[in-house]
Design a protein around this nucleic acid. Structure first.
Lengths: 221, 221
DNA sequence: CACTGCAATTGCAGTGTGTGCAATCTTGCA
DNA sequence: TGCAAGATTGCACACACTGCAATTGCAGTG
């Protein structure tokens, strides 16, 4: 157990419960929801702490669970893979007003420009804290195995982009939705690279703008 | 053992040896080299056969080794992972005359056009048989786990491209080698997608040309 | 507050991947 | 033929991950 019993906690109030309560303002559901989220955070934090201390390969799932005070079986109810916990992967919903605007052909009517707007919007609302996100990105850059999983997680979202592009383009034979979606992935990926190289500073949309500008220059040249 | 003892084989001539002998014209090394390559092929073939018959998850390394007549321990001397055997991964050397030309600033002087030439050249000399390559790609398209590994293997080569781009560009502050290399990866990836969608028909360079044209249209629009 | 439906946690036993090590066999070479 | 280097193998083992059945905890109802 990790709990520091400094203040006399009310009986029955576990670490988990306190954490869940602390999340109350954010949580929109009942106690059940909050606890679930809290435990997820707890596990990811424990994982990061141990990996920082001992390195990825020296950390076992068992150790993580001991640190978090949870059974190993429960761990695998939260994450498919040990690596997923390390990366703190959470689905990143592409749906939004921006997505609907894009699918409808807006806002400008120029495919590339609108793609840039869409990606910028998605980049603006990450599903997890920015610090944790960049942390995951750094780890992935170092460990090839994690990179594979990171890319896979990333690639999972391509399907949503393909759907949006397809909706926008209809049956245009000159545009392959797969290729357009791949381009979107490239833009996002390159943006992340620059973002990471900048130490996580600045806004995603700005880095994205730079990448798009570079692409335009490359093609125009 | 799987060997069919139909014809009376000369004593001492195992399946492996015969296979190694068959590879003799291709092999440049001694018997040792040929046997090693032969065994590699043997294992990949066995893996493909079993995966085709029973599906990826139903095939164990043990079964593969039984089929190939090799100990499981040996299997892992050849491949880091079961998935690597399924995909038949082999490093794809980017170095070539085309690579040196590109690094030197040729052949046309236009970065994107020359990138296209470079990728086309690399695509023209795959390190393994084309049939096996497309087979691997199909498998990867179906199984998300394999896709991850495939992309990771793919991404491993980015370093070489970055080096080439850096050599070509020198210290141009307006061009980020990472971004250019990512673009190259995107072009290659999209080419593979089209190639696969076409059932493996046609030349890689042609599909690539189509992708580049689409990119130009997108940017110009 | 007692009661009940349902979700989450847990223990346990088992499968399969992948590794280190030492013994054994094969190949290349003198 | 005999020796040194390389490859294969068996064995023991750590670890990731899964299915199942039992238990615990939350939420809503009367």
């Amino acid at each position: 157990m990790i709990s520091d019993k400094t203040a006399a906690a009310p009986p029955g109030a576990s670490d988990l419960q306190r954490l869940a309560d602390a999340l109350a303002p954010v949580g929109d559901g009942g106690l059940r929801e909050r606890k679930k989220r809290a435990r997820r955070e707890l596990l990811i934090d424990a994982t990061h702490r141990l990996v920082d201390a001992h390195g990825l390969d020296a950390v076992t799932v068992e150790a993580i669970c001991a640190e978090a005070g949870v059974s190993t079986r429960t761990f695998f109810n939260y994450f498919e893979t040990k690596d997923d916990a390390v990366l703190g992967h959470v689905p990143w919903p592409v749906e939004s007003d921006a997505a609907r605007t894009f699918a409808a052909g807006g806002p400008s009517g120029h495919l590339l420009a609108d793609l840039q707007v869409l990606i910028g919007a998605v980049l603006g609302e990450p599903p997890v804290g920015r610090d944790r996100f960049t942390r995951a990105f750094e780890l992935a850059a170092r460990e090839p195995r994690l990179l594979a999983r990171h890319i896979a997680w990333f690639e999972q979202h391509k399907g949503q982009v393909v759907a949006l592009v397809r909706e926008r383009l209809g049956a245009d034979p000159d545009r392959d939705p797969e290729v357009v979606a791949s381009l979107a992935m490239f833009l996002t990926h390159a943006t992340f690279l620059r973002w990471d190289a900048a130490g996580g500073a600045g806004e995603g949309a700005d880095h994205l703008a730079h990448v798009v500008a570079e692409l335009r220059a490359l093609v125009a040249e």
